[in-house]
Design a protein around this nucleic acid. Structure first.
Length: 210
DNA sequence: ACATTAAGTGATT
DNA sequence: AATCACTTAATGT
């Protein structure tokens, strides 16, 4: 764990903090599709991603999903911070996108470290900021209803976190993540295919010139 | 061969 | 862009 810690966060944290992280954190491995946290659940720990990817989504009253963003190695869950500012119930659902390794840190510690370690505070604020930026991008694409751009961004993000230019999802699954309908996605994908941006078969979408 | 699930299409709102 | 209704194609048993 020492080496993984240094690999992923090493440069950023001071010695003592690294030691404390090792002392209090515990490793958790998850498989694709595993739920890390669900709506209304109490957040008891803050995850640091070592490897793999996690997708973070929100759900509306009808149970329709909407993907907010992906977390990759070196990222942490921004929603964990809001629990330190009062409420402790999760507003989101986090699902493992790929096989992933996480280091779980009790929230009591992370609060303490906020004051104790400058590098920790910087790290937390920094990742909060990048989450916020990603979220804004999502909001932008939503507000302007550019479904085709959302779709392309989704495919690129997804292939990035999976480290594979082939995305193995059904049109239906994509539609769920984007909170759209299968038919619309099928048509947009067809367009992308005609433009030579992707190649697709059943359960298979390959990104070409990206 | 048959049932099931994924993807394509035209018409309509 | 979303929904409906229907077709066609791929896959599993």
């Amino acid at each position: 764990m020492q080496s993984e810690l240094i690999n992923n966060y090493g440069g950023a944290f001071e010695e003592n903090l690294l030691l404390e992280i090792q002392q209090y954190g515990r490793i958790k491995k998850v498989q694709p599709g595993d739920f890390l946290i669900d709506f209304g659940q109490t957040i008891s720990a803050m995850p640091l991603l070592f490897s793999g990817a996690v997708k973070v989504l929100r759900e509306d009253d009808n149970g329709d999903e909407l993907l907010l963003y992906f977390l990759e190695k070196g990222d942490t869950c921004a929603m964990t911070f809001s629990c330190c500012m009062g409420q402790s119930k999760s507003e989101i659902r986090a699902v493992a996108e790929t096989e992933a390794e996480l280091l779980m840190i009790p929230i009591a510690q992370m609060e303490l470290w906020m004051q104790k370690y400058k590098s920790w505070r910087a790290f937390v604020l920094n990742s909060y900021h990048s989450r916020m930026t990603e979220l804004l991008e999502t909001v932008d694409s939503l507000a302007f209803m550019k479904m085709d751009e959302r779709l392309l961004k989704y495919l690129i993000d997804k292939s990035k976190v999976n480290k594979n230019s082939v995305v193995r999802s059904t049109h239906h699954e994509i539609a769920q993540d984007l909170n759209s309908s299968r038919v619309v996605i099928s048509r947009l994908l067809k367009k992308l295919e005609n433009k030579g941006k992707i190649a697709q078969q059943r359960n298979y979408i390959k990104l070409l010139d990206v």
